[in-house]
Design a binder for these strands. Structure first.
Length: 109
DNA sequence: GCCATGGCTAGTA
DNA sequence: GCCATGGCTAGTA
């Protein structure tokens, strides 16, 4: 079955997140055209991260926290982000005011 | 039916 | 902690 337009756009948006920045599930969904599609972003990250070479680690939840569990990739994701100079506070939280990618808004300015 | 969400509510501290 | 969301997948008819 062919991938939906939405799925393809999710992949494009994730690919566009630059090194050193993060985006959120909800924001990726919104930029891809469906503000309610956060769970599809999860699905794409699950199924396409490897095959599509996605910077999967640059997607966090809306609080700026890694959604993965401690034995499910949390450490790996944190390492990858820190290697890009993304900083975590004592609660493993990222300051989204500093590290959030603003997406298409840049193009509109 | 699944899901690495997100938003809102109830119920504690 | 509950539940709506929505595209996909596995598994049936």
């Amino acid at each position: 079955m062919a991938r939906s337009v939405f799925t393809v756009r999710i992949i494009e948006v994730i690919r566009a997140i630059p090194s050193g920045k993060v985006s959120t599930y909800g924001e990726v969904a919104e930029l891809a055209g469906n503000p309610q599609g956060a769970r599809q972003v999860v699905r794409v990250l699950h199924s396409c991260s490897e095959t599509e070479n996605l910077p999967w680690h640059r997607v966090v939840n809306r609080l700026g926290r890694i959604a993965l569990g401690p034995f499910d990739g949390f450490d790996r994701q944190k390492e990858l982000l820190e290697a890009e100079s993304v900083e975590f506070d004592d609660n493993d939280q990222i300051d989204l005011n500093r590290f959030r990618w603003r997406g298409d808004l840049d193009a509109l300015c």
